[in-house]
Design a binder for these strands. Structure first.
Lengths: 112, 112
DNA sequence: CATCAGGTACGACACGCATCGTACCTAGGA
DNA sequence: TCCTAGGTACGATGCGTGTCGTACCTGATG
């Protein structure tokens, strides 16, 4: 019941290089595309993204996204919540989330 | 005197993953930041970017930028011209060049 | 033709990092 | 208390790729 929120750098301290490198990985980008496409910014769980990789690797990727400032993680002890830092990203890199959200509307990303 | 233009994929065929990977390298990103910041879209030479790397590595990077669709190269035989594919990028990834151009206005990128 | 500068081709190397195996931690429920 | 599911820590590994050395090509200049 600790609910400690883990955040990365402040909006102004985000670096374009590290952000782009984080987004160059297909699995991390898939996570960000889903988050960017959700206009309601719902909190997600790690499992809800259906990543075809092991638990350890998921930990690695979510940590990477957090450390560059794209998401924050809420620690519930035995599970974790994922939240997009939409307002911070919109301030620091306006247009970035729009590019990602557009990917969710491309045919090859339609899962239903 | 051949002046053959080498281009990558068409605008619609550009892939976000490969584009972001190309931009995750600091030297390629430095090139793109300069190109994006020039509102007149002047043709550049490879040397004009003052990259602190060898000729061979520059060839490698410019080829990478061309193959993902960000620039086109004009082959003059014993030298090469570099052009930003601004309109194609603006169609496929609106906002991307704005993010890059904003980097040119950051203090740590001020060279003069 | 000789020379030179810009650029490419090929190969080699070193480092980063995505991935996973094993082991351990945390909270909730039976 | 034990079990289970979600998550982390640490180490090992394999691949991608940024980098450069050497050699060669191209066009301009003298």
């Amino acid at each position: 019941m600790v609910k400690e929120t883990l955040s990365g750098p402040a909006a102004a301290e985000m670096e374009l290089g590290t952000v782009l490198r984080a987004l160059s990985d297909e699995h991390r980008r898939a996570v960000m595309v889903e988050l960017a496409a959700d206009e309601e910014d719902r909190e997600r769980t790690c499992n809800s993204f259906d990543l075809p990789i092991s638990k350890q690797t998921q930990t690695h990727h979510f940590r990477a996204l957090r450390e560059v400032g794209l998401i924050c993680e809420i620690d519930y002890g035995n599970r974790k919540g994922i939240r997009l830092r939409r307002s911070d990203i919109d301030v620091r890199f306006p247009g970035l989330l729009g590019i990602l959200a557009a990917e969710a509307r491309k045919p090859e990303h339609a899962h239903g």
